[in-house]
Structure formats: C-alpha cells, structure tokens
C-alpha cells in the first residue's frame, strides 16, 4: 500500500473518531444536569414540598404549595386561551395554506415563536400590568402569547401528515369542507395534535422570564386572579438566589419537579405517537 492511501485511511479514522467524540460531548450535558438535579432534588423533596406554604428565611421545612397551585392556574388559563386559537390558526395554515397570505402568516408565526420570552413579558407589562398591576391574569396572558405560535405550528405540521385521500374521500361523499376538516382530518391527526399540545404545555410550565414582572410572586396562596401569584419557576429562581441553605434546597426540589414534569411529558408523548403513528412512518 502506498503512503498516500494509508494517509487517507488515517485521516478518515481520526475524523470519524472526532465526530464520534463530538456526538458524545453533545449527549453528556443531559446526563450531567439530570444527575445533579436528581441527586440534590431527591435529598430536598418531601411531601411537605407539595402541601406546605413557604417558611421564613432560614427556617427548616415548608414547601411550595402556593407556587405549584399558581403555576397550575396560570398554565391552565394559558392553555384554555391558546389551544382553540392556535388550533384554528394551525387548521388555516394546513388546510388553506397555499396562498401568499398563508405563507406570510406562517412566517409571522415562526417569528412569534422565536421571540425571546422576556420580550413577551415586557409586552404584557405594557399591555396589562401598567393598568391593573401584577396578577395571575397578566402571567397567563404572557404564557398564552408564548404558547400560541407553538400550538399553531405543531398542529399545522400534524394536520399536514394526514394524507389527501382522506380529504378527497370525504369531499367525494358530499361532505362540506368544514365537516371534512372537523370530522375526518382532525380525528385522524388527533394523537399528533395532542402530542404537540402536551409539548407546548411542558415548555410553558418551565417559563420563568415572562412571569417575573407579570405575575411577580407571592409567599401565600393568591385569593383572586387579580393578585400577584406565585409560580414554580419564579419561586425556584428567587430561592436559588437566596443566601439561605434551606431555600437553596427548596430550589433544587422545585427544579426536580420541573425536570420530571418535562421529561415525563416528552417520553410519554413520544411513546403515544409511536404506538399510534399510522400515516407518517
């Protein structure tokens, strides 16, 4: 074998090994982060974490019940507001999506989806908080703006996976177009659309930046939706930055809850999609 050939084989080997190394490097952070969150979080979490209100600085015990309830309320409100709107917009972009207008709106939706979440917080501050003060409504509005483009784009993608012959069959039977969409296309894409919605929920549940100056925070349960409201991510942030050991412990417990929530949703939706994937594969 001549030298040039051996050199090429050597370069090939080294480069492929390098690519393998980079791939390992990309997969490692997930392990490192989740191992530490599990380790520190499991040491700090207890039943009290879910049922108790926060204790004062430096005191043992207490929990984040108020933050968990607050997060659930705001994420729930955001879901109620954004899912019908986003789904309808997704239907437009998938079913009537070939015009110039539709392409333009799709681009707009992409831009909305990539807007930094802190900017959304400022928008809601200027739109709502300036007039009514910090409230759960404002927090929910910020989460809605973040969730909306994700819901629209994912439902569009999922609806597009339904093959055209389903639509043609419906139209050939004399069904009006709206009935074809609502009764045939949507059910066919159901598991995919639900997956998209779950992922959007998981994404929004971990959002901190837009809540900092819309919902603010609260050390107690909020009595109404017009009051400042605690949320799990914001409480984790405040506790993480505190100098007290006990609070930092609570922050790790909160982080564990957030990560578990996200991972469970991601894993389960993936399994759901795999078991029901009729058309796309």
């Amino acid at each position: 074998m001549d030298f040039a050939y051996r050199r090429r084989k050597f370069v090939n080997l080294v480069s492929l090994a390098g690519i393998f190394g980079l791939a390992v490097l990309a997969a490692v952070p997930f392990f490192v982060v989740s191992v530490f969150v599990l380790d520190k979080g499991l040491g700090a979490i207890s039943w009290d974490f879910f049922t108790q209100l926060p204790k004062g600085p430096g005191e043992e015990g207490g929990g984040m019940a108020n933050a968990i309830v607050g997060s659930a309320i705001m994420v729930g409100l955001a879901a109620v507001l954004s899912i019908p709107w986003g789904l309808a917009a997704g239907i437009f972009m998938s079913e009537y999506g070939d015009s110039r207008t539709a392409r333009c709106l799709r681009f707009t939706t992409d831009l909305l989806a990539s807007t930094p979440s802190i900017v959304v917080g400022i928008f809601v501050y200027g739109l709502i908080v300036v007039y009514t003060g910090f409230s759960a409504w404002a927090g929910a509005a910020a989460l809605t703006v973040i969730m909306l483009p994700i819901v629209a784009r994912t439902s569009e993608e999922m609806l597009k996976l339904v093959p055209d012959h389903v639509r043609e069959a419906g139209l050939a039977l004399g069904l009006p177009r709206w009935k074809v969409i609502v009764r045939l296309v949507l059910p066919a894409a159901k598991s995919g659309v639900i997956t998209g919605l779950m992922l959007a929920l998981a994404r929004v549940a971990g959002e901190t930046a837009p809540l900092l100056f819309t919902a603010l925070g609260n050390n107690y349960h909020s009595e109404s939706l017009n009051q400042p409201t605690a949320s799990l991510p914001v409480q984790v942030y405040n506790y993480a930055m505190s100098p007290f050991e006990e609070m930092q412990q609570q922050a790790w417990a909160g982080a564990l809850v957030l990560v578990l929530f996200v991972v469970v949703i991601n894993l389960s939706t993936r399994l759901l999609l795999r078991s029901k994937q009729g058309w796309s594969s």
Binding site: V37, G206, Y237, A255, L258, V259, N266
Partner: peptide, 10 residues
Amino acid sequence: AIPSIVYGLW
C-alpha cells in the same frame, strides 16, 4: 426541553 431556570441553578 429542560427549563432555562434549571440550567441556571445547575
């Protein structure tokens, strides 16, 4: 998918 706040804490 991991929330930004968790990266911050870590």
